[in-house]
Amino acid sequence: MELVVYLAGEIHTNWRDELREKAKISDLPLTFVGPMTDHERSDNIGEEVLGKQPTSVLKDEAASNINNLRTKLLMEKSDVVIALFGEKYKQWNTAMDASTAVTLGKPLILIRPETLHHPLKELSNKASVTVETVDQAIKVLNYIFE
């Protein structure tokens, strides 16, 4: 059995690489998908497809439509979603992706530091599992294959 794992979360740190490497070391049969992590590409995809937009709001709308389509398709094909909330960046996209996973009925592993317990308590309550570290998320994935 192989699982497809959607990696939702901030794109400014290397947590995805860390998780992929630890999954590889554990020899887990996983395929990873996720949002576009090239921030510039994500912001500009609307204009790449539709051409120059007359305002920054319309540019954002065009990019958002294409990014949302990508997220929806990849998340629907995933078996489990891992959403990481870090402390440094505002994480509206992570919250949206985690909520989408819950709405789609996808198992959700939420990674968040203890300091974010209070602001994420409702989302954490909807997640299948809440952990504080990438290592703990890997342990959860390992357990699935025991």
Rank of each mutant, 00 (worst) to 15 (best):
G86L: 04
E10M: 02
R41Y: 10
T71Y: 10
Y6S: 07
L84T: 00
E76I: 03
I45P: 08
H39G: 09
G105V: 10
R16S: 04
T130L: 05
A83D: 02
S26A: 15
L84P: 01
E18C: 10
P29S: 04
L30K: 02
S99N: 15
S26Q: 13
V81F: 02
K121E: 15
P113I: 09
N68T: 14
I138D: 11
E40Y: 14
I144R: 08
L30A: 04
I11F: 07
L141A: 12
M96Q: 06
A127F: 03
V57T: 07
T133A: 08
D97E: 15
A98R: 09
V5T: 04
P113S: 10
L50D: 00
Q91D: 08
S26I: 10
V49E: 12
Y89I: 09
N142R: 15
H117A: 13
E61P: 02
M75H: 03
P29Y: 01
L104M: 15
S78Y: 05
K22F: 01
S99G: 15
N93L: 08
A101Q: 06
E10Q: 07
L104F: 14
L123V: 02
Q53P: 09
P119H: 10
I25F: 11
A83T: 00
V81H: 01
D79Y: 03
V102S: 09
V49L: 14
D43P: 00
V49W: 10
F32I: 05
T55V: 04
E114K: 15
W15A: 09
S99L: 13
K52L: 14
K106H: 02
N44Q: 12
K22V: 00
A137K: 08
A23W: 04
F85E: 11
T100C: 14
G51T: 10
G105K: 14
T71W: 11
L73T: 15
A127C: 08
T94A: 10
L50G: 00
N125T: 04
I144A: 13
L74S: 04
H39A: 12
S56N: 06
T31C: 04
K126C: 15
T55S: 12
Y89K: 08
